[in-house]
Simulated assay, not measured.
Amino acid sequence: MQNRIGNDEKYYNEQDKINTIKMREVLDTLPRFCRQFFRGIEPTTSARTRLGYAYDIRTFFEYLHNVNPVLKKKEIVDYSLDILDMIEREDIEEYLEYLSLYEKKDKEITNAEQGKKRKMSALRCMYSYFYKAELISRNTAELVKMPKLHENEIIRLEPDEVATLLDQVEAGEKLTKSQLKYHEKTKLRDVALLTLLLGTGIRVSECVGIDIDDIDFNTNGLRVHRKGGYNTTVYFPDEVRDALLNYLEERKLKIAEEGSEKAFFLSLQNKRITVRAVENLVKKYSRNVTTLKKITPHKLRSTYGTNLYRESGDIYLVADVLGHKDVNTTRKHYAAQDDENRRRAARIVKLRETPGEK
């Protein structure tokens, strides 16, 4: 489908524009040599990735500015490229320790292993770029070990919890009086949205970006814009189709706000629903199903991936459907199911018939 200018522009193009504007604002706070780095990685990264790197690299230079007496005398934007050669491995290791807990604008900020790893990835990428370009003499960031991530148990809904969740969304059970006021207005939308997430495993960002003409009810196909910037088609079962069609009849009666005319899922304000709104509605409904699990849209994605792997035993199929470029990413998340598959294999293969079997 062709991209059009104005209100019909695709959601992900609009988001890229927003991220590009934010990126320019962050660049104005970084050393000037950083502009060359971000231009250099532009062909291989998304606007969202570059913005994340920019925020993380700014944190690093703010740290240096705060702790180093010499650098404190200079504005961060005036730092020259040779500062990267001056930084020692110990400086970066101390930076990682600082990330565990620090204050910014009277706000306490913490980083666990995942946050530290992300910030180190940004730093490594910048060092690697300038080192390969032979603009610095050493790649100090490469000498620092990446924070080790501890494997966390996959949190997902069990089949009976999935059924209970969808039943409660339809019935509005256990909602507060204030929540029930809006339930009739959002019930069909919420059922369609949760059924879609649970029935396809798409990301929440992919879900909110769906336009009406992205759905083909003849083939049960859904066009989504994947993380990484490419489009693909995922297919949904008839149960998802029914939920989407039920909501579509209601959606046709709504007059969307300017800029959201093509959006499939609308908020109560008739604007394209946001990622935060989906996160909130998942939280609202799921806490009435389980109090022991913190369910997010990503956990619904994990629920789908686990169920697909449990039924198919095909890790490559799961990786393809979930949009993982590297099957090892999928294997890492769903390896716990391998033991169950191996046990099932042991029950399937029989060497001799037992008495009474033919």
Score class of each variant (00 low, 15 high):
T233H: 05
T233F: 08
V234M: 05
V234N: 08
Y235H: 07
F236L: 09
D238F: 14
E239M: 10
E239P: 03
E239C: 14
V240T: 13
R241E: 00
R241S: 15
L244H: 10
L244C: 02
N246K: 04
Y247M: 01
R251H: 06
R251M: 02
L253R: 12
L253N: 01
K254L: 11
K254C: 09
I255F: 01
I255R: 09
I255V: 07
E257D: 08
E258H: 13
S260R: 05
S260K: 06
S260G: 00
A263N: 03
A263I: 02
A263G: 02
L266C: 02
L266E: 01
S267Q: 07
N270E: 05
N270V: 10
K271T: 04
K271S: 00
K271G: 00
R272T: 12
I273W: 00
I273Y: 00
T274S: 13
V275R: 10
V275D: 06
V275Q: 06
A277I: 02
V278P: 00
V278H: 09
V278N: 04
L281C: 13
V282W: 03
V282K: 09
K283G: 12
K284L: 11
N288S: 03
N288L: 04
V289C: 02
T291Q: 14
K293F: 01
P297V: 09
H298W: 06
K299W: 13
L300C: 11
S302C: 08
Y304T: 11
G305A: 05
G305H: 13
N307R: 12
N307C: 01
R310G: 11
R310Y: 07
S312I: 09
S312R: 14
G313S: 13
G313Q: 12
G313M: 09
D314L: 03
I315C: 04
L317M: 10
V318A: 13
D320H: 14
D320E: 08
L322Q: 11
D326I: 14
D326G: 13
V327C: 12
T329C: 15
T330F: 03
R331T: 05
K332H: 08
K332E: 04
H333L: 15
H333F: 14
